[in-house]
Design a binder for these strands. Structure first.
Lengths: 194, 194, 194, 194
DNA sequence: AATGAATGAGGTTTCATTCAT
DNA sequence: TATGAATGAAACCTCATTCAT
């Protein structure tokens, strides 16, 4: 319990520092300081910086998935499923700007080279046997509801704009309130629907 | 000529290294080595690393703008203008994957903090008095052709998917050939059109 | 104790190197080597080279002041006070040639630009409410014992020769033994007395 | 003639830069620039930086000696000779602050390690068979006019204060006008006279 | 288990000097 | 003779990682 406290402190400190300043401006010593822990202590919990970074990514991903899958409208129409996933993801990232910044850093770095957006939103979402964005798209295509495009293309059309807009939101360029989110969801739906 | 050569060699080497491995893993010494130049030589052409990075950005931007503005369909319908910009940009980035990777690194780093995507694609494109993406959107909105959304939102809907897809293309996850580009353009148009 | 040791080793090494060869020929790496310490270790104790240099100066100044103020003949006649300060300072610098050389380097460098000789020997000596060279001179002038010249002139007349002679002493050009010091003190007194 | 022009330009530029900023902040490239000459050209006239620095010193010394020896009151009383040398030297340094700064830098650097003040004012002054400060002192001692102290001590008593005061003058701490110079000369004479 | 001082490789940058033109 | 681009050693400093306590 003491252990896990320290571990959490380290992860929290690391996430904040990295989200705010990027990987190359987040020294282990400063992470340690921020976590009220000695520099060497970090290495009892994480073999090295890369491992810490990857575990941080994993943790955020897991949390996101928990929320996304919590009330997933299983068996509902494709459109409803899409609106649900889009809206939840959007709200999650807006209310967790640190997670969003961290993910951005991660995917734009050598660390995240192997886990691109599509993997995250495609493969991993089907954890626990639940449906996935991929699933939504496949179903939509086969039901002639969605355009007959490669899944990866549909997924970019559906998710790409949102990620850019959330960045703009965190930078203060737009205010993404509920009604605007709704409109954007509609627009993305227009992009993928037949 | 000799001058140009060395300077070009340095810029080329820097761009490749940075595009492939990011700013913080592209040491000046290695850039020099790759450019077949002594470390100190770089500093005859660029005051410091930051200047090199920014000039590299500027060069890419200029080249892109030259192509984008070359055959710009001035005075043509909004839809045609949009298809032109989208297609040209897409083709440019696909044929210049290093430029694309470099721009990604740049915009996701402190260096590019002030020149975000929207600025690039919004403000700067109106060089030489030409129309701009922003211009296209404004005209489209006022003619009731496009959805009445903030420009920044339209721009994300229009460009966001493409940027993700080009990344996937450079990673070998999709093959963006001409017909697919056409379909994506259509889909993005669907997203923004009324 | 270990701490102190390393820090002292670094300061000692730095002082020796700088005193012997000047600031610009005393690389941090060599200081480290001389102190039997890794280069990076220096930066645990001193933020950068400038800080190290300034702390070294401060340390020397403090030691000198401790000695100068130790048996200060408070309330005694001006002449006695002058002879005390002159003699003590002279003896201190002769027995601490490294300190002397360091101070010379320091005052003849950008580092010491703000703390010139006069400040050192004028203002700072009045720590702990004690009298100062300036004080001695002011009292002497008002009592018509000393020449009515600007303090800064008196201070040069009083101290200038000594500093040159100590340099010559450290270089082996003169042997400043007690009786000669006495004579020099007398001569300097002749220079300033009415 | 062209040659010697370039050579003069280089020396002038070097002197100014070094006097103002010190040896270690006067890069050859900048000296070249200031002299409107290519970097490599300097090396046609001076084997390396050290040689340039030493020749610069020599040149200044020669100019000073020319002036000092120009109207030297040969055969006049010791006191008059002393007043002459002191006054001339003082005036020269005040009217040639760059020379003064350069000399200061020089004597406080490894370059000038072998040519200390005493050498300058003692040995070298007897160029052309003229009398010297040393000569003045020797004569003064033997005539019982001056204190019976080592020449080097007398020379420090006589010259030390002036050098400090000129520094203070160039720094704006005192204004050394003619009447003050006279008073200081008197004071220094008091220091050395029996 | 925890500490944090110590390490030292490696980063950016400067600059005296050389040499092809 | 003059040029100035090129060199590369060496300076200062950072930081991931180790290890004695």
């Amino acid at each position: 319990m003491n252990n896990s406290d320290k571990c959490d402190d380290i992860m929290q400190a690391a996430m904040e520092l990295i989200a705010e300043r990027g990987f190359h401006d987040a020294p282990m010593s400063e992470i340690a300081q921020k976590a009220h822990v000695a520099a060497g202590t970090i290495y009892r919990y994480f073999e090295n910086k890369e491992v810490l970074i990857n575990e941080l990514f994993q943790e955020i991903e897991d949390k996101m998935m928990d929320i996304l899958l919590g009330n997933y409208p299983l068996g509902k129409p494709v459109k409803e499923q899409f609106f649900y996933v889009f809206g939840e993801l959007c709200r999650y990232l807006i209310t967790h700007p640190l997670h969003f910044r961290y993910m951005e850093q991660y995917f734009n770095s050598p660390y995240g080279i192997s886990k691109r957006r599509d993997k995250l939103l495609g493969k991993n979402i089907n954890r626990d046997g639940h449906d996935t964005l991929t699933g939504i798209f496949e179903e939509g295509i086969s039901h002639q509801i969605l355009k007959d495009l490669p899944i990866i293309v549909l997924s970019s059309l559906a998710i790409g704009p949102m990620l850019y807009l959330i960045r703009d939101h965190t930078l203060g360029f737009v205010e993404l309130e509920e009604s605007l989110i709704r409109q954007i969801t509609e627009a993305c739906w227009d992009a993928i629907k037949k």
